[in-house]
Write a protein that binds this DNA or RNA. Structure first.
Length: 489
RNA sequence: GUCCCCAUCGUCCAGAGGCCCAGGACGUGGCCCUUUCAAGGCCAAAACACGGGUUCGAAUCCCGUUGGGGACGCCA
Protein backbone atom coordinates (compact mmCIF):
# COMPACT_ATOMS: atom_id res chain seq x y z
CA UNK A 1 0.00 0.00 0.00
CA UNK A 2 1.35 3.42 -0.86
CA UNK A 3 1.51 5.62 2.21
CA UNK A 4 -2.09 6.25 3.23
CA UNK A 5 -3.28 9.55 4.59
CA UNK A 6 -5.97 9.36 7.23
CA UNK A 7 -7.51 11.96 9.44
CA UNK A 8 -9.31 12.38 12.70
CA UNK A 9 -11.68 15.30 12.44
CA UNK A 10 -13.30 16.09 15.76
CA UNK A 11 -15.70 18.91 16.27
CA UNK A 12 -14.60 20.83 19.37
CA UNK A 13 -18.06 20.97 20.88
CA UNK A 14 -17.04 18.79 23.81
CA UNK A 15 -14.17 16.87 25.35
CA UNK A 16 -12.61 13.83 23.72
CA UNK A 17 -14.97 11.00 24.61
CA UNK A 18 -14.12 7.33 24.44
CA UNK A 19 -15.90 6.85 21.13
CA UNK A 20 -13.95 9.61 19.47
CA UNK A 21 -10.79 8.38 21.12
CA UNK A 22 -11.25 4.94 19.63
CA UNK A 23 -11.89 6.38 16.18
CA UNK A 24 -8.73 8.43 16.54
CA UNK A 25 -6.85 5.35 17.73
CA UNK A 26 -7.94 3.28 14.75
CA UNK A 27 -6.86 6.04 12.39
CA UNK A 28 -3.55 6.41 14.17
CA UNK A 29 -2.89 2.68 14.26
CA UNK A 30 -3.69 2.38 10.59
CA UNK A 31 -1.37 5.24 9.69
CA UNK A 32 1.45 3.90 11.83
CA UNK A 33 0.97 0.35 10.61
CA UNK A 34 1.36 1.37 7.01
CA UNK A 35 3.83 4.18 7.36
CA UNK A 36 1.14 6.67 6.48
CA UNK A 37 0.22 10.11 7.70
CA UNK A 38 -2.17 10.85 10.54
CA UNK A 39 -3.82 14.22 10.07
CA UNK A 40 -5.71 16.04 12.79
CA UNK A 41 -8.29 18.47 11.52
CA UNK A 42 -10.51 20.52 13.79
CA UNK A 43 -14.04 20.89 12.46
CA UNK A 44 -14.93 24.08 14.25
CA UNK A 45 -17.38 25.52 11.80
CA UNK A 46 -20.18 25.39 14.33
CA UNK A 47 -19.05 28.61 15.96
CA UNK A 48 -21.93 28.56 18.41
CA UNK A 49 -20.85 25.36 20.07
CA UNK A 50 -17.12 25.29 19.47
CA UNK A 51 -14.51 26.73 21.75
CA UNK A 52 -10.76 27.02 22.03
CA UNK A 53 -10.81 25.26 25.41
CA UNK A 54 -12.51 22.27 23.84
CA UNK A 55 -9.82 22.14 21.19
CA UNK A 56 -7.18 22.04 23.91
CA UNK A 57 -9.14 19.40 25.75
CA UNK A 58 -9.24 17.18 22.70
CA UNK A 59 -5.55 17.71 22.05
CA UNK A 60 -4.82 16.78 25.67
CA UNK A 61 -6.81 13.61 25.32
CA UNK A 62 -4.97 12.57 22.17
CA UNK A 63 -1.61 13.38 23.70
CA UNK A 64 -2.45 11.42 26.82
CA UNK A 65 -3.29 8.40 24.71
CA UNK A 66 -0.04 8.83 22.84
CA UNK A 67 -1.70 9.54 19.51
CA UNK A 68 0.67 11.99 17.92
CA UNK A 69 -0.44 13.64 14.70
CA UNK A 70 1.80 14.30 11.75
CA UNK A 71 -0.17 17.25 10.46
CA UNK A 72 -2.58 19.48 12.30
CA UNK A 73 -2.79 22.06 15.06
CA UNK A 74 0.54 23.01 16.66
CA UNK A 75 2.57 21.02 14.13
CA UNK A 76 1.22 22.45 10.88
CA UNK A 77 1.84 20.64 7.62
CA UNK A 78 1.72 21.05 3.85
CA UNK A 79 -2.05 20.70 3.59
CA UNK A 80 -3.09 23.36 6.07
CA UNK A 81 -4.77 25.20 7.49
CA UNK A 82 -6.04 22.48 9.80
CA UNK A 83 -8.84 24.41 11.41
CA UNK A 84 -11.88 24.13 9.23
CA UNK A 85 -12.93 27.66 10.06
CA UNK A 86 -9.82 28.86 8.23
CA UNK A 87 -10.85 27.07 5.08
CA UNK A 88 -14.21 28.69 4.42
CA UNK A 89 -13.05 30.47 1.26
CA UNK A 90 -12.00 27.17 -0.24
CA UNK A 91 -15.36 25.67 0.61
CA UNK A 92 -17.18 28.57 -1.00
CA UNK A 93 -15.06 28.16 -4.08
CA UNK A 94 -16.11 24.53 -4.18
CA UNK A 95 -19.74 25.56 -3.95
CA UNK A 96 -19.24 27.94 -6.87
CA UNK A 97 -17.67 25.16 -8.88
CA UNK A 98 -20.67 22.97 -8.20
CA UNK A 99 -23.10 25.65 -9.36
CA UNK A 100 -21.01 26.47 -12.40
CA UNK A 101 -20.85 22.82 -13.33
CA UNK A 102 -24.60 22.45 -13.06
CA UNK A 103 -24.31 20.13 -10.04
CA UNK A 104 -25.96 22.58 -7.68
CA UNK A 105 -28.47 25.38 -7.81
CA UNK A 106 -29.54 28.35 -5.76
CA UNK A 107 -32.42 27.82 -3.40
CA UNK A 108 -34.46 30.80 -2.24
CA UNK A 109 -36.76 28.95 0.09
CA UNK A 110 -36.85 30.32 3.60
CA UNK A 111 -36.54 28.04 6.57
CA UNK A 112 -40.21 28.76 7.21
CA UNK A 113 -41.13 27.55 3.72
CA UNK A 114 -39.05 24.46 4.23
CA UNK A 115 -40.60 23.65 7.54
CA UNK A 116 -44.09 24.00 6.09
CA UNK A 117 -43.22 21.79 3.14
CA UNK A 118 -41.77 19.15 5.44
CA UNK A 119 -44.82 19.12 7.66
CA UNK A 120 -47.19 18.97 4.71
CA UNK A 121 -45.27 16.09 3.20
CA UNK A 122 -45.26 14.27 6.49
CA UNK A 123 -48.98 14.68 6.85
CA UNK A 124 -49.46 13.28 3.37
CA UNK A 125 -47.48 10.27 4.47
CA UNK A 126 -44.68 10.89 2.05
CA UNK A 127 -41.01 11.31 2.71
CA UNK A 128 -40.12 14.83 3.80
CA UNK A 129 -37.64 15.39 1.05
CA UNK A 130 -37.12 18.80 -0.57
CA UNK A 131 -39.50 19.22 -3.50
CA UNK A 132 -36.99 20.98 -5.74
CA UNK A 133 -39.10 24.11 -6.02
CA UNK A 134 -36.08 26.27 -6.73
CA UNK A 135 -34.58 23.79 -9.12
CA UNK A 136 -37.57 24.32 -11.37
CA UNK A 137 -37.51 28.12 -11.30
CA UNK A 138 -37.56 29.91 -14.62
CA UNK A 139 -34.84 32.42 -15.35
CA UNK A 140 -37.39 35.22 -14.91
CA UNK A 141 -38.33 33.95 -11.47
CA UNK A 142 -34.69 33.67 -10.52
CA UNK A 143 -34.03 37.19 -11.74
CA UNK A 144 -36.95 38.48 -9.68
CA UNK A 145 -35.61 36.88 -6.52
CA UNK A 146 -32.13 38.17 -7.17
CA UNK A 147 -33.55 41.66 -7.70
CA UNK A 148 -35.38 41.53 -4.37
CA UNK A 149 -32.16 40.24 -2.78
CA UNK A 150 -33.86 37.13 -1.46
CA UNK A 151 -31.31 35.13 0.57
CA UNK A 152 -30.11 32.10 -1.32
CA UNK A 153 -28.54 28.86 -0.26
CA UNK A 154 -26.78 26.44 -2.58
CA UNK A 155 -28.35 23.06 -2.98
CA UNK A 156 -26.75 20.03 -4.53
CA UNK A 157 -28.75 18.48 -7.34
CA UNK A 158 -28.90 14.79 -6.50
CA UNK A 159 -28.79 12.71 -9.68
CA UNK A 160 -30.86 9.61 -10.36
CA UNK A 161 -29.56 6.14 -9.94
CA UNK A 162 -27.88 4.28 -7.14
CA UNK A 163 -24.49 4.55 -5.56
CA UNK A 164 -22.57 1.77 -3.95
CA UNK A 165 -19.28 1.64 -2.16
CA UNK A 166 -17.17 -1.05 -0.58
CA UNK A 167 -16.89 -0.26 3.05
CA UNK A 168 -13.79 -1.79 4.59
CA UNK A 169 -15.73 -3.02 7.58
CA UNK A 170 -19.25 -3.49 6.26
CA UNK A 171 -18.61 -4.64 2.73
CA UNK A 172 -20.77 -3.46 -0.12
CA UNK A 173 -23.35 -0.80 0.73
CA UNK A 174 -25.78 0.41 -1.89
CA UNK A 175 -28.20 3.29 -1.68
CA UNK A 176 -30.82 4.52 -4.09
CA UNK A 177 -30.40 8.25 -4.72
CA UNK A 178 -34.18 8.56 -4.66
CA UNK A 179 -33.82 8.45 -0.90
CA UNK A 180 -31.46 11.39 -0.83
CA UNK A 181 -32.85 14.90 -1.00
CA UNK A 182 -31.15 17.83 -2.65
CA UNK A 183 -29.07 18.83 0.32
CA UNK A 184 -27.74 22.27 1.12
CA UNK A 185 -24.01 22.68 0.67
CA UNK A 186 -23.77 26.40 1.30
CA UNK A 187 -26.07 28.22 3.71
CA UNK A 188 -27.73 31.47 2.83
CA UNK A 189 -25.28 33.22 5.13
CA UNK A 190 -22.41 31.91 3.06
CA UNK A 191 -21.33 29.21 5.51
CA UNK A 192 -20.63 25.79 4.06
CA UNK A 193 -22.40 22.81 5.56
CA UNK A 194 -20.68 19.77 6.94
CA UNK A 195 -21.24 17.68 3.83
CA UNK A 196 -19.40 20.18 1.68
CA UNK A 197 -16.59 20.96 4.08
CA UNK A 198 -15.63 17.38 4.87
CA UNK A 199 -15.48 16.44 1.26
CA UNK A 200 -13.70 19.62 0.26
CA UNK A 201 -11.14 19.18 3.01
CA UNK A 202 -10.68 15.46 2.52
CA UNK A 203 -10.11 16.06 -1.17
CA UNK A 204 -7.69 18.91 -0.64
CA UNK A 205 -5.86 17.10 2.11
CA UNK A 206 -5.51 14.06 -0.14
CA UNK A 207 -7.12 11.75 2.40
CA UNK A 208 -6.99 8.17 1.12
CA UNK A 209 -8.97 6.39 3.84
CA UNK A 210 -11.90 7.82 5.72
CA UNK A 211 -12.15 5.95 9.00
CA UNK A 212 -14.98 7.28 11.09
CA UNK A 213 -18.04 6.41 13.12
CA UNK A 214 -20.86 4.26 11.89
CA UNK A 215 -23.22 7.19 12.25
CA UNK A 216 -21.75 8.59 9.05
CA UNK A 217 -22.73 5.68 6.84
CA UNK A 218 -25.84 7.46 5.67
CA UNK A 219 -23.83 10.57 4.83
CA UNK A 220 -21.45 8.63 2.66
CA UNK A 221 -23.59 8.38 -0.47
CA UNK A 222 -24.11 12.16 -0.42
CA UNK A 223 -20.41 12.65 -0.09
CA UNK A 224 -19.68 10.23 -2.89
CA UNK A 225 -21.97 12.33 -5.08
CA UNK A 226 -19.93 15.36 -4.12
CA UNK A 227 -16.65 13.65 -4.98
CA UNK A 228 -18.10 12.74 -8.36
CA UNK A 229 -19.30 16.25 -9.05
CA UNK A 230 -15.93 17.62 -8.07
CA UNK A 231 -14.19 15.09 -10.24
CA UNK A 232 -12.13 13.94 -7.28
CA UNK A 233 -10.95 10.38 -6.66
CA UNK A 234 -12.90 8.51 -4.00
CA UNK A 235 -11.16 7.55 -0.77
CA UNK A 236 -11.77 4.15 0.79
CA UNK A 237 -14.30 4.20 3.61
CA UNK A 238 -14.25 2.29 6.88
CA UNK A 239 -17.15 2.87 9.24
CA UNK A 240 -16.42 1.70 12.73
CA UNK A 241 -19.31 0.69 14.96
CA UNK A 242 -20.41 2.82 17.86
CA UNK A 243 -19.65 2.35 21.53
CA UNK A 244 -22.74 1.77 23.63
CA UNK A 245 -23.49 2.07 27.31
CA UNK A 246 -24.58 -0.96 29.39
CA UNK A 247 -28.17 -0.24 28.39
CA UNK A 248 -27.18 -0.60 24.74
CA UNK A 249 -27.85 3.06 24.13
CA UNK A 250 -25.27 5.27 22.57
CA UNK A 251 -22.68 6.09 25.23
CA UNK A 252 -23.37 9.42 26.89
CA UNK A 253 -22.65 11.38 30.03
CA UNK A 254 -25.36 9.66 31.98
CA UNK A 255 -23.42 6.42 31.68
CA UNK A 256 -20.71 7.87 33.88
CA UNK A 257 -17.25 8.86 32.75
CA UNK A 258 -17.07 9.19 28.99
CA UNK A 259 -14.20 11.63 28.70
CA UNK A 260 -10.82 9.97 28.27
CA UNK A 261 -9.28 12.63 30.48
CA UNK A 262 -11.63 11.55 33.20
CA UNK A 263 -9.94 8.16 33.10
CA UNK A 264 -6.57 9.85 33.10
CA UNK A 265 -7.54 11.65 36.28
CA UNK A 266 -8.66 8.40 37.82
CA UNK A 267 -5.21 6.96 37.35
CA UNK A 268 -5.75 4.62 34.45
CA UNK A 269 -2.74 3.96 32.29
CA UNK A 270 -3.01 5.39 28.78
CA UNK A 271 -1.56 2.22 27.29
CA UNK A 272 -4.26 0.26 29.10
CA UNK A 273 -6.93 2.54 27.72
CA UNK A 274 -5.52 2.18 24.22
CA UNK A 275 -5.35 -1.60 24.58
CA UNK A 276 -8.90 -1.74 25.86
CA UNK A 277 -10.28 0.61 23.22
CA UNK A 278 -8.47 -1.22 20.43
CA UNK A 279 -10.07 -4.51 21.39
CA UNK A 280 -13.51 -2.92 21.65
CA UNK A 281 -14.73 -3.73 18.20
CA UNK A 282 -11.48 -4.88 16.71
CA UNK A 283 -9.83 -8.26 16.83
CA UNK A 284 -6.31 -9.33 15.97
CA UNK A 285 -7.88 -12.73 15.20
CA UNK A 286 -5.68 -14.42 17.75
CA UNK A 287 -6.15 -15.05 21.44
CA UNK A 288 -3.77 -12.29 22.45
CA UNK A 289 -5.42 -9.75 24.72
CA UNK A 290 -2.55 -7.77 26.15
CA UNK A 291 -0.83 -5.47 23.71
CA UNK A 292 1.81 -2.85 24.05
CA UNK A 293 1.40 0.14 21.79
CA UNK A 294 3.96 -1.25 19.35
CA UNK A 295 2.25 -4.61 19.29
CA UNK A 296 -1.03 -2.93 18.46
CA UNK A 297 0.57 -1.10 15.57
CA UNK A 298 2.07 -4.32 14.28
CA UNK A 299 -1.19 -6.26 14.53
CA UNK A 300 -3.70 -3.67 13.41
CA UNK A 301 -5.82 -4.10 10.30
CA UNK A 302 -9.07 -2.40 9.38
CA UNK A 303 -10.40 -5.77 8.26
CA UNK A 304 -10.42 -6.95 11.86
CA UNK A 305 -13.02 -4.39 12.87
CA UNK A 306 -16.33 -6.01 13.61
CA UNK A 307 -19.59 -4.72 12.23
CA UNK A 308 -21.69 -4.61 15.36
CA UNK A 309 -21.81 -2.02 18.08
CA UNK A 310 -19.89 -2.68 21.29
CA UNK A 311 -20.81 -2.13 24.90
CA UNK A 312 -18.29 -0.28 27.03
CA UNK A 313 -17.16 -2.57 29.85
CA UNK A 314 -15.48 -0.68 32.73
CA UNK A 315 -14.44 -3.89 34.52
CA UNK A 316 -12.40 -5.01 31.60
CA UNK A 317 -10.73 -1.62 31.39
CA UNK A 318 -9.77 -2.04 35.04
CA UNK A 319 -8.27 -5.39 34.29
CA UNK A 320 -6.23 -4.00 31.43
CA UNK A 321 -5.06 -1.20 33.65
CA UNK A 322 -3.95 -3.62 36.32
CA UNK A 323 -2.18 -5.82 33.80
CA UNK A 324 -0.33 -2.91 32.27
CA UNK A 325 0.68 -1.59 35.65
CA UNK A 326 2.07 -5.00 36.53
CA UNK A 327 4.20 -4.87 33.40
CA UNK A 328 5.57 -1.39 33.92
CA UNK A 329 9.31 -1.15 34.57
CA UNK A 330 10.09 0.17 38.08
CA UNK A 331 11.61 3.46 37.00
CA UNK A 332 8.83 4.07 34.51
CA UNK A 333 6.24 3.36 37.18
CA UNK A 334 8.01 5.71 39.56
CA UNK A 335 7.88 8.51 37.01
CA UNK A 336 4.16 8.02 36.46
CA UNK A 337 3.53 7.97 40.17
CA UNK A 338 5.45 11.12 40.93
CA UNK A 339 2.67 13.63 40.17
CA UNK A 340 0.14 11.58 42.08
CA UNK A 341 2.39 11.24 45.09
CA UNK A 342 3.12 14.93 44.97
CA UNK A 343 -0.58 15.67 44.99
CA UNK A 344 -0.90 13.44 48.05
CA UNK A 345 2.07 15.17 49.69
CA UNK A 346 4.01 11.94 50.05
CA UNK A 347 6.61 12.45 47.34
CA UNK A 348 10.28 12.82 48.13
CA UNK A 349 13.00 13.27 45.56
CA UNK A 350 15.14 10.70 47.35
CA UNK A 351 12.73 8.09 45.96
CA UNK A 352 14.57 8.45 42.70
CA UNK A 353 17.93 9.04 44.36
CA UNK A 354 19.42 7.66 47.53
CA UNK A 355 16.33 5.67 48.46
CA UNK A 356 15.39 4.37 45.04
CA UNK A 357 16.13 0.73 45.88
CA UNK A 358 13.82 0.95 48.86
CA UNK A 359 11.19 2.83 46.89
CA UNK A 360 11.20 0.31 44.06
CA UNK A 361 10.85 -2.52 46.55
CA UNK A 362 7.79 -0.84 48.01
CA UNK A 363 6.30 -0.41 44.55
CA UNK A 364 6.91 -4.06 43.72
CA UNK A 365 4.97 -4.98 46.82
CA UNK A 366 2.08 -2.69 45.96
CA UNK A 367 1.98 -3.58 42.28
CA UNK A 368 -0.06 -6.80 42.27
CA UNK A 369 -2.99 -5.18 43.97
CA UNK A 370 -2.97 -1.89 42.12
CA UNK A 371 -5.57 -1.42 39.44
CA UNK A 372 -4.99 2.27 38.94
CA UNK A 373 -2.07 4.54 39.67
CA UNK A 374 -4.04 6.16 42.47
CA UNK A 375 -4.06 2.87 44.32
CA UNK A 376 -0.36 3.16 45.14
CA UNK A 377 -0.92 6.30 47.12
CA UNK A 378 -4.17 5.12 48.66
CA UNK A 379 -2.97 1.67 49.64
CA UNK A 380 0.64 2.42 50.41
CA UNK A 381 0.44 5.69 52.25
CA UNK A 382 1.74 4.16 55.50
CA UNK A 383 5.09 3.48 53.84
CA UNK A 384 5.67 7.18 53.38
CA UNK A 385 4.35 8.83 56.51
CA UNK A 386 5.59 8.96 60.08
CA UNK A 387 2.32 8.03 61.68
CA UNK A 388 -0.52 5.84 60.53
CA UNK A 389 -4.18 6.54 60.39
CA UNK A 390 -6.11 3.72 61.96
CA UNK A 391 -9.10 2.26 60.24
CA UNK A 392 -11.62 2.01 63.12
CA UNK A 393 -13.04 -1.23 61.79
CA UNK A 394 -9.58 -2.77 61.59
CA UNK A 395 -8.75 -1.70 65.13
CA UNK A 396 -12.04 -3.11 66.29
CA UNK A 397 -11.45 -6.40 64.58
CA UNK A 398 -7.81 -7.12 65.36
CA UNK A 399 -6.72 -5.07 68.34
CA UNK A 400 -9.10 -6.27 71.01
CA UNK A 401 -7.75 -9.76 71.71
CA UNK A 402 -6.99 -10.28 75.42
CA UNK A 403 -3.34 -10.22 76.27
CA UNK A 404 -2.49 -8.39 73.11
CA UNK A 405 -0.66 -5.67 74.98
CA UNK A 406 1.92 -8.13 76.24
CA UNK A 407 2.08 -9.96 72.94
CA UNK A 408 2.88 -6.77 71.07
CA UNK A 409 5.45 -5.79 73.65
CA UNK A 410 7.09 -9.17 73.20
CA UNK A 411 7.06 -8.82 69.42
CA UNK A 412 8.57 -5.38 69.69
CA UNK A 413 11.32 -6.68 71.97
CA UNK A 414 12.02 -9.65 69.71
CA UNK A 415 12.22 -7.48 66.60
CA UNK A 416 14.66 -5.27 68.45
CA UNK A 417 17.10 -8.16 68.74
CA UNK A 418 17.16 -8.90 65.01
CA UNK A 419 20.51 -8.35 63.37
CA UNK A 420 19.00 -8.15 59.92
CA UNK A 421 15.55 -6.64 59.51
CA UNK A 422 14.49 -8.67 56.52
CA UNK A 423 11.21 -10.47 55.87
CA UNK A 424 12.53 -13.94 56.71
CA UNK A 425 14.02 -12.89 60.04
CA UNK A 426 10.90 -10.95 60.93
CA UNK A 427 8.67 -13.89 60.11
CA UNK A 428 10.83 -16.20 62.23
CA UNK A 429 10.72 -13.75 65.11
CA UNK A 430 6.97 -13.27 64.99
CA UNK A 431 6.32 -17.00 64.78
CA UNK A 432 8.70 -17.62 67.64
CA UNK A 433 6.87 -15.13 69.83
CA UNK A 434 3.55 -16.71 68.90
CA UNK A 435 4.83 -20.17 69.73
CA UNK A 436 6.38 -19.04 72.98
CA UNK A 437 3.22 -17.36 74.15
CA UNK A 438 0.82 -20.01 72.91
CA UNK A 439 -1.05 -17.61 70.67
CA UNK A 440 -1.88 -18.18 67.05
CA UNK A 441 0.56 -16.56 64.65
CA UNK A 442 -2.38 -15.23 62.66
CA UNK A 443 -3.59 -13.31 65.69
CA UNK A 444 -0.27 -11.58 66.04
CA UNK A 445 0.08 -11.01 62.35
CA UNK A 446 -3.27 -9.30 62.11
CA UNK A 447 -2.59 -7.15 65.12
CA UNK A 448 0.82 -6.16 63.84
CA UNK A 449 -0.68 -5.31 60.47
CA UNK A 450 -3.15 -2.92 62.01
CA UNK A 451 -0.43 -1.43 64.17
CA UNK A 452 1.97 -0.91 61.29
CA UNK A 453 -0.38 -0.08 58.42
CA UNK A 454 -3.52 1.06 60.20
CA UNK A 455 -5.48 -1.27 57.96
CA UNK A 456 -6.71 -4.84 57.90
CA UNK A 457 -5.43 -5.46 54.39
CA UNK A 458 -1.94 -4.97 53.07
CA UNK A 459 0.74 -6.77 51.12
CA UNK A 460 2.53 -9.62 52.91
CA UNK A 461 3.07 -8.48 56.47
CA UNK A 462 6.70 -9.49 56.85
CA UNK A 463 7.77 -7.66 53.72
CA UNK A 464 5.74 -4.69 54.83
CA UNK A 465 7.35 -4.63 58.26
CA UNK A 466 10.77 -4.98 56.73
CA UNK A 467 10.24 -2.10 54.32
CA UNK A 468 8.51 0.20 56.76
CA UNK A 469 11.72 -0.10 58.75
CA UNK A 470 12.84 -0.87 62.24
CA UNK A 471 12.41 2.64 63.63
CA UNK A 472 8.91 3.24 62.41
CA UNK A 473 7.76 -0.25 63.24
CA UNK A 474 9.03 0.15 66.76
CA UNK A 475 7.20 3.46 67.14
CA UNK A 476 4.00 2.05 65.69
CA UNK A 477 4.09 -1.01 67.87
CA UNK A 478 4.49 1.22 70.94
CA UNK A 479 1.62 3.39 69.76
CA UNK A 480 -0.55 0.32 69.31
CA UNK A 481 0.33 -0.87 72.79
CA UNK A 482 -0.80 2.46 74.19
CA UNK A 483 -3.98 2.21 72.16
CA UNK A 484 -4.72 -1.27 73.42
CA UNK A 485 -3.94 -0.29 77.02
CA UNK A 486 -6.28 2.66 76.97
CA UNK A 487 -9.19 0.60 75.73
CA UNK A 488 -11.73 -0.95 78.03
CA UNK A 489 -11.67 -4.66 77.34
C1' G B 1 -42.64 6.78 8.66
C1' U B 2 -38.35 6.04 5.06
C1' C B 3 -33.36 4.41 4.32
C1' C B 4 -28.98 2.05 6.18
C1' C B 5 -26.17 -1.06 9.58
C1' C B 6 -25.95 -5.13 13.05
C1' A B 7 -27.35 -10.06 15.33
C1' U B 8 -22.28 -16.30 18.88
C1' C B 9 -21.81 -16.91 26.59
C1' G B 10 -24.03 -11.05 31.11
C1' U B 11 -19.86 -8.13 28.23
C1' C B 12 -15.73 -7.86 24.29
C1' C B 13 -14.08 -11.02 20.57
C1' A B 14 -12.61 -16.08 17.60
C1' G B 15 -15.23 -18.88 14.13
C1' A B 16 -14.74 -16.92 6.58
C1' G B 17 -19.69 -25.12 5.01
C1' G B 18 -17.42 -30.38 7.80
C1' C B 19 -11.46 -29.25 12.52
C1' C B 20 -17.52 -26.70 16.77
C1' C B 21 -22.35 -31.27 21.33
C1' A B 22 -18.61 -23.78 19.44
C1' G B 23 -12.65 -21.30 21.40
C1' G B 24 -10.25 -17.01 24.26
C1' A B 25 -10.74 -12.76 27.60
C1' C B 26 -13.45 -9.72 31.39
C1' G B 27 -16.97 -10.60 34.99
C1' U B 28 -19.29 -14.61 38.17
C1' G B 29 -18.88 -19.31 41.33
C1' G B 30 -15.55 -23.13 43.44
C1' C B 31 -10.76 -25.12 44.71
C1' C B 32 -5.36 -24.50 45.48
C1' C B 33 -1.66 -21.18 47.52
C1' U B 34 -2.01 -18.17 52.13
C1' U B 35 -1.14 -13.92 57.83
C1' U B 36 -5.29 -10.27 55.27
C1' C B 37 -6.36 -8.41 50.43
C1' A B 38 -4.70 -8.99 45.78
C1' A B 39 -1.77 -11.51 42.24
C1' G B 40 -1.01 -16.44 40.34
C1' G B 41 -2.61 -21.67 39.21
C1' C B 42 -6.66 -25.15 38.37
C1' C B 43 -11.90 -26.14 37.60
C1' A B 44 -17.03 -24.73 36.59
C1' A B 45 -21.57 -22.40 34.95
C1' A B 46 -22.62 -19.46 30.69
C1' A B 47 -24.11 -18.29 23.78
C1' C B 48 -24.80 -19.68 17.74
C1' A B 49 -32.39 -14.65 18.31
C1' C B 50 -36.50 -17.22 15.53
C1' G B 51 -38.55 -19.49 10.99
C1' G B 52 -37.82 -21.14 6.24
C1' G B 53 -34.62 -22.60 2.41
C1' U B 54 -29.58 -24.22 -0.29
C1' U B 55 -26.36 -28.47 0.82
C1' C B 56 -24.55 -35.20 1.95
C1' G B 57 -23.46 -31.49 5.85
C1' A B 58 -24.71 -24.52 8.30
C1' A B 59 -22.90 -20.64 13.87
C1' U B 60 -20.91 -20.04 8.93
C1' C B 61 -24.56 -19.09 2.37
C1' C B 62 -29.80 -17.10 0.80
C1' C B 63 -34.82 -15.24 2.15
C1' G B 64 -38.18 -13.69 5.82
C1' U B 65 -39.48 -12.43 10.93
C1' U B 66 -38.12 -10.35 15.40
C1' G B 67 -34.87 -7.46 18.14
C1' G B 68 -31.13 -3.63 18.66
C1' G B 69 -28.55 0.60 16.66
C1' G B 70 -27.81 4.70 13.33
C1' A B 71 -29.35 8.42 9.78
C1' C B 72 -33.08 11.28 7.64
C1' G B 73 -31.47 19.82 9.34
C1' C B 74 -29.49 26.22 5.99
C1' C B 75 -25.74 20.62 13.29
C1' A B 76 -21.17 18.27 12.85
Amino acid sequence: MTAPRVRFAPSPTGYLHVGGARTALFNWLFARRHGGVFVLRIEDTDVERSSAEMVEGILDGLRWLGLDWDEGPKVGGPYGPYFQSDRLDRHRAMADRLVAGGHAYYCYCSSGDLKAKREAAEKAGGAGRYDRTCCKLSSAEIAARERSRTPRAVRFRVPDGTRRFDDLVHGSIEVDCAHIEDFVVLRSDGQPTYQLSVVADDVEMAITHVVRGDDHISNTPKQILLYEALGAPLPRFAHVPLILGPDKKRLSKRHGATSVMEYARQGYLPEAMANFLALLGWSPRTDQELFSRDELVAAFALEGISGGNAVFNPEKLEWFSQQHIARLAPDELAMRLKPIFEASAIWEDSFLGSRHAWFFSVLELLKPRARRLDDFAAQGRFFFTDTVEYDPAAVEKHLREVGLREHLLAVDAELGTLSTFDAASIEAAVRAVAGGRSVKAATLIHAIRVAVTGKSVSPGLFEVVSLVGRERVHARLRAAVRLVSSRPV
